[in-house]
């Protein structure tokens, strides 16, 4: 054909471009995850992947189902707003299987994490210089962790 006589090379070159572009589109159709674009410009299934991870902190609701006595003590006291695992650590395994008992806590280390005196803490928050305050005695010698105020009948 006359039209291709001196333009044949250009058409061949252009054909390479068409092949390249098409293969990107074909590959794209094969590779792109199915749920991509389900909710927005991302893989919709990612939401489920993220939601499906197991929890490690069971949440106080789970604890309160069995440990009703503690709930009673605690809600009456100053630590009512402190959730169980804030001191006891992540216990989803224990909630799952109650025979999997958690380690005992050491109040000498635990309590000062919150109650060590510092000018940076809110003024009304109970805080002590541990050494002066207890003279080296463990905190639970005097304070019940679940209901710590001594005046409120918390002293042992």
């Amino acid at each position: 054909m006359a039209i291709f006589k001196d333009t044949g090379h250009l058409f061949r070159f252009a054909a390479l471009f068409v092949v390249g572009t098409t293969s990107i589109f074909v590959l794209r159709a094969i590779v792109t995850p199915k749920s991509f674009g389900q909710y927005g410009h991302y893989r919709g299934a990612a939401l489920k992947d993220l939601a499906d991870r197991p929890v490690k902190y069971a949440g106080h609701q789970a604890c309160e189902v069995c440990h009703t006595d503690i709930v009673t003590t605690k809600t009456a006291g100053k630590h009512a707003g402190v959730n169980c695992e804030a001191c006891h650590g992540p216990l989803a395994k224990h909630a799952d299987d109650p025979s999997n008992t958690p380690a005992k806590l050491d109040t000498a280390v635990l309590c000062v994490k919150c109650h060590a005196a510092s000018a940076a803490k809110p003024k009304g928050f109970p805080q002590v210089q541990a050494d002066d305050h207890s003279g080296g005695l463990a905190c639970d010698t005097c304070h019940k962790p679940h209901d710590p105020a001594i005046a409120a009948g918390g002293a042992k």
Partner: peptide, 18 residues
């Protein structure tokens, strides 16, 4: 996200004592 979609609160909120 794995907690709030199950009706729990976040680990930081759950464990904030104040």
């Amino acid at each position: 996200y794995h907690r709030i979609t199950k009706g729990l609160t976040t680990a930081c909120c759950e464990n904030c004592p104040t």
